[in-house]
């Protein structure tokens, strides 16, 4: 499991768009190589944190919030990749993911070809 962290600002503006095109081309080349070698099992780009929604479990309740998981206290412990029609369906599954008290599940759409 490889997780990519980057500043979103790097891809904003005209220079950012050029950089994005370059980086995406590099991703595709790398992925092609890794898939051919039988190493890569899956992957994808995520849309910006602007599109993030988080389900918080705590105090016997589950609540939905705007925005990404932002604490430094908890650590990323795993991921599910699902395909559903809309955010409500994704949130319904996010609620079913077992987490410890205070656990959070962030929901982020993947980039689509037409984005």
């Amino acid at each position: 499991m490889l997780l990519i962290y980057e500043p979103e600002s790097a891809y904003q503006g005209e220079a950012g768009e050029r950089r994005l095109t370059e980086i995406v081309a590099k991703h595709m080349a790398l992925a092609e190589e890794l898939i051919a070698a039988g190493i890569q099992k899956g992957g994808g780009g995520l849309q910006g944190v602007d599109t993030a929604t988080t389900v918080v479990t705590g105090g016997g309740q589950q609540t939905v919030h705007d925005g990404p998981f932002a604490e430094t206290h908890e650590q990323l412990g795993g991921y599910y990749l699902i395909e559903v029609d809309d955010l409500d369906e994704a949130l319904a599954i996010a609620r079913r993911i077992p987490v410890a008290e205070g656990g959070k599940v962030e929901v982020r759409p993947l980039m689509r070809e037409d984005d």
Binding site: Q47, G48, D50, T51, A52, T53, T63, V64, D66, D85, D86, L87, D88, E89, A90, A92, V107, P109, D115
Partner: peptide
């Protein structure tokens, strides 16, 4: 603008919520 973009990008459905979600 941000809220509208999120509705579009995150896929907020144009739907009446499911009974389980109704109270919230």
């Amino acid at each position: 603008t941000r809220a509208k973009r999120k509705i579009q990008a995150a896929g907020v459905p144009f739907a009446i919520p499911e009974p389980a979600d109704w109270p919230e």
